[in-house]
Design a protein around this nucleic acid. Structure first.
Lengths: 162, 162
DNA sequence: CACTCAATGCAATCGGTTTGCAAATGCGTT
DNA sequence: AACGCATTTGCAAACCGATTGCATTGAGTG
């Protein structure tokens, strides 16, 4: 399917991937490899779309780990570059695994009816950002870009009046 | 239609710009032209950068109007197209006046240190959005795009650097 | 001038997120 | 294999932006 990963040529899907990288990264930051952390990363690993803290919590089985622990860990994991945070403007942060393969940040296309989320692989013109930055003398400029619309399925659905 | 307004008897202060357009629009929506609404629009009219509900409330003088009223009115005004809502990911919505003069929606460049906000007048390539939409079969697609970086002033400032 | 419904003030509430603190646990050290 | 200490966790309470129910006020209209 996807191009073989040079580092782990034998693994297609990530689910079976060992925690070694994660463990390493955690250890490097003098962080502990705890149950909740492994569980969180594991949940993210088997989900395509970004998940909210609450969704992660639910996927874990509410008894496996406190919601506050998830919030705390998402910060930690984000700081360490293991996960990426997204904001679709609905008031809840969402997280994706930031594995090296699909490393670069990307954008999403969110259905405003069913909340389905697609990754947008098209690359955003970086020159645009560069010109914006230089024109105003800003440095270290990043951007946040998300798309919203109505997905094919919801278009077919009679649903709302309008 | 911008003629020096016939000042209303008991409008608070300032207001030199006519409320006529606003008034008209409000009336058209069977909305009332109330003190708080005039005051809110007036505050926005005097500010270049988008303001949060709380900032508007503060600018009004906390006694002039309840915060809940501001929240309610921002929704109303947004729905009527008098203001535009922006989200810079810091958990607080921000609003700008949406007068016809200052064009359609635009983007911002936010300093992550001092929170200064600049308008980015460059126009975002619409073909990009169009291609994203059509490729995935979405309709009614819009986007949200904001830039973040460090402004010239803050670059000069020593501050804590890693 | 009276009437009616929109709008406001106030307080309670809500959902997401953060935090204080004591108990539990990872993990390098002994 | 046990120890010791810093990191983590669970729990509860606090926070914060935002929303809402309700009684009252007030704008616009006949």
């Amino acid at each position: 399917m996807s191009k073989p990963c040079s580092r782990h040529p034998h693994t297609h899907r990530l689910i079976q991937q060992p925690l070694t990288e994660l463990t390493e990264k955690l250890r490097q930051g003098s962080r502990k490899v705890t149950g909740p952390r492994q569980a969180i990363l594991d949940v993210l690993r088997r989900h395509a779309s970004p998940l909210t803290n609450k969704e992660i919590h639910a996927a874990l089985g509410k008894e496996d780990c406190d919601l506050a622990t998830i919030y705390r860990n998402m910060h930690t994991l984000e700081r360490m570059g293991l996960v990426r945070r997204y904001d679709f403007g609905d008031g809840a942060a969402r997280f994706e695994l930031a594995s090296e393969e699909e490393s670069a940040h990307h954008h999403h296309l969110v259905c405003t009816r069913c909340s389905m989320i697609l990754e947008v692989d098209d690359c955003f013109p970086e020159e645009f950002q560069a010109s914006v930055a230089s024109r105003h003398g800003f440095v270290g400029v990043s951007h946040r870009l998300e798309f919203f619309g109505i997905c094919p399925k919801c278009q077919a659905t009679p649903s709302a009046t309008a």
